[in-house]
Write a protein that binds this DNA or RNA. Structure first.
Lengths: 341, 341
DNA sequence: TTGAAAGCGGTACCAA
DNA sequence: TTGGTACCGCTTTCAA
């Protein structure tokens, strides 16, 4: 059974396809109420739905956007995607997901694909939009937005939290609550997205508080996972057993710290306090639950998607620095405050 | 700067659009090597990419599939989606994600949308494909596949694990290791996907082992989250303080059980053993780490996507019951085995 | 209010 | 090996 087309409807309803088209698009003019009634009825009983592809072709609007993730698995991408899809739906866009696996070739391939599919805009998430992609991005000639990433290209709006400031605040939160021997469990120092800025925030907070700040106070790993947190904490405890508070670059790492502390008979937060980063669901599930820096990924996704759709409609837009806040739970011991709030 | 079309290329290269088309499609015949060289070169320097929408229209192949999730946030959907996208890419399909929020109206809306966008197939994930959707599904006339869900419609291949059997095995695992006082922390009993069958598996295992099996041994909640696990365990400890082992209907619930046990000074696994379900990343992060039933969601997603693409190509296919296995970690205490392995 | 017809950017058949 | 052209399903202009 072949799909029925506008022609079939026209024939069935004894009108021209032009009339059917007008009715479908609710132009308001170009048909009488009576014909409309009749045509709508035939459409209904034929189970006809217009072919969006044909529409796209003539309107030159695909009604789709593309999202590039390094990996869609993982809580963070999942929440972002959720927000992205929600906003896209509001603006009447459908979303294509693509998994680049952080592979530049794959990324380029996907960009071409999205180009061919005539997407009206692209969200580049959790990655770095390098010069490598400049050419294709320019060719595509549709709005791009980076989400929790960075762009080497100019005039690309970004949606992100100020990682440096957020980590600064997290570190400061520990200091405020009486901690003076701090260490950090970090991701790769050359990761310009979640590595460098967070380490920098940590250092600045220490410096501003006149606390010692040696590079040995930061133990970094190649990623931000649970195991990385475990290892990093282990090495910190070897070199800096005096530490009473840990700043972690992700909730997963913080969970790793808690787990390793547990294994070593170190109590959290009595002996060592831990502050996480991300406020994923995981933060509520650790024992003790995790005080952490909140990044609202779903909201960020929503805003990014919204921003992109606004760009598509030709509105003027600008980058968005998302608010962050510290979610207080049970993993930080509060001792004597040091004056300033 | 408008996008260049095949016409532009043809004009620029001094050939007909027919020739360009043949070259683009690599028909092998219909052009000389020399013209090919020349045309490819102009294409390259013009930065021309064919319009996939126009192609779809004439070929009647959109090269896209749709995926319906109740919610794309959450580890489970994220992992499934990852697998889905990976397989789709292999088969040259792009994927539209849709968030139904379990809302039938929204679901219907998305199905219509996907219909209009001419998707070549649909993966219906983590939900129930009810009679409600029969009409539209039939109209769409493209293959459907359910992933970790159920279908009231006939002839829809399913990819899932046998939840009843898996829970049976999990329960049996505890029994095998010497436990006789068991309880279950379950989701909604009327949830035909992850509620009913898992409860049933638990009961059957007890019955088959000649162990007492009263309905009070199952405490269920309206969902499968961390908090639900906490509450359910609390109520179980009130009514059945003698229990030494808990079967949880999800890893999150199991994490909740561990957390609540902790709060009550009950040691895991010394006092109470816990077995989870899903083998999400969370299972490695709890303290103690979680022995659990493995569902490989990314693999399931991959297989579902693969299956769908095969259906699209007209191959004969059938449902897939995925293997499950028990991943042994630290949350179960092994006491005297009871004979049979 | 209506319908005929010219495209949108491609593909594929047929003739040259 | 080539080019001309009908057509995919729809929108939109122009005349009727």
């Amino acid at each position: 059974m072949k799909k029925s087309t506008i022609k079939d409807v026209a024939r069935e309803a004894n009108v021209s396809i032009a009339t059917v088209s007008r009715i479908l698009n609710n132009t308001g003019k170009g048909y009488s109420d009576k014909t409309k009634q009749h045509v709508m009825q035939t459409i209904e009983q034929m189970g006809y739905f217009p072919n969006a592809i044909a529409r796209s072709l003539i309107n030159n609007e695909s009604g789709t956007i593309g999202v590039l993730f390094p990996a869609v698995s993982g809580m963070v991408s999942a929440e972002m995607l959720h927000g992205i899809e929600a906003a896209a739906q509001v603006y009447g866009k459908s979303v294509f997901v693509c998994n680049t696996l952080s592979d530049p070739d794959k990324t380029k391939h996907y960009l071409q694909l999205l180009y061919e599919k005539q997407v009206e805009g692209v969200i580049f998430a959790s990655g770095r939009l390098t010069r490598n992609f400049q050419k294709i991005v320019k060719q595509m000639n549709v709005p791009f937005v980076t989400l929790s990433g960075i762009s080497d290209l100019k005039n690309i709006p970004e949606i992100k939290v100020d990682d440096l400031k957020a980590t600064y605040d997290a570190t400061n939160y520990l200091i405020k609550h009486g901690h003076t021997k701090l260490a950090m469990v970090s991701g790769p120092p050359h990761d310009l997205i979640a590595g460098t800025p967070r380490m920098e925030g940590f250092k600045q907070a220490l410096t501003d508080a006149n606390l010692p700040c040696k590079s040995s106070q930061i133990s970094w790993s190649s990623a931000f996972y649970f195991e990385d947190g475990k290892h990093a904490f282990r090495s910190i405890m070897k070199s800096h057993p005096e530490v009473t508070a840990i700043v972690a670059a992700s909730d997963e790492m913080a969970a790793g710290v808690i787990s390793e502390a547990n294994a070593q008979g170190i109590r959290v937060p009595e002996d060592v306090s831990v502050i996480g980063y991300d406020n994923t669901k995981l933060a509520t599930m650790t024992v003790p639950s995790l005080t952490t820096v909140s990044q609202e990924f779903d909201v960020m996704g929503y805003r990014a998607s919204e921003l992109l759709c606004q760009c598509i409609m030709g509105e003027d837009t600008d980058s968005i620095i998302m608010e962050h806040k510290i979610i207080e739970r049970e993993s930080v011991k509060k001792t004597k405050a040091r004056g300033v709030v």
